[in-house]
Amino acid sequence: MPLADISLAYWNTVLIFAGYIAIITLGQYVSMSSGSLSVAHAAMAGAGAYTGGLLTRDFGAPLPIAMLGGALVGFVFGIVLGFLSVRLHLLVAGLMTLAYSEVMVVVAFSLDYLGGANGLTGVPALTSFWLVYLMLAVLVLAIWRYDTSRLGYAARACRDDPRAAAAMGINVAWVKSLTFALGAAVAALGGVLRIHYTLVETPDGLGFYQGMNFLILAVFGGSYVVWGAVFGGFTLTVLPEILRFSAADRYILYGAVLTVIIIVRPQGVITRVPLGADGGARWAWRLRKRLMARLVAGGAKRPGEER
């Protein structure tokens, strides 16, 4: 096979990964828009993936139905978790989401019907590059609208000052639970797309470390604006691929980049302040440009080395 083909197929894979990871990160963004702290979105995506996978594999459902079913399950889990943690301190609520993830791991692990430790397999391949990016575009648009909707404003009021929000007549518990559940549904949708591409979903993917990863993606990109989530999900997926060293080396670099950038731009890379408005932004922009240059050069020079 000519080198160019491998490279293309390889980047196709990476970009599909980046696409559904961006979708799950969007879910994280929506849930965080009302001020919740969540490490449960990996588990939400997992719940969606298991649900969607079962629907297509065992019930012969078409993908749209699977997506709907997955999102619904995510929504239900989200609303329950949201209501349970709404009156808790931020960090304790975060712990609730952590506990939820760990419980989901154990459930997935111990139910033979779900494939146990081996995970859910035998799912048909239904996800394509275009489908992922179509969904991403639709979701970005919808969430963009959400940000300027009544619910979106209410959510931000709850995030910035719950007491003032309550005084303004906003039902804080309801808004927080609802937005948390909507975000969970979006993440679950990403999970459905994922399993129909990777064709397997394992319990480990639901745990704390994966959940933390989505939290990092959202905050890194900038949790105050929808593009932040897309940017974080996208760059931090593609970044390790550009850093073409051994797996350990690229994660070392990845970690270092995370630390440096969050210190330089604590509000996340993308904010409402236009890029270039201050030194940090310009710095991050330049870094991004350099990375893009490497993406082009690296992709062509040493194709298909990994994976």
Binding site: D249, T259, I263
Partner: peptide, 15 residues
Amino acid sequence: TSFIATGGLSIVMQN
């Protein structure tokens, strides 16, 4: 912010 900054270091240290 501290969560991510130290999280990055934790990834560096593990790897």
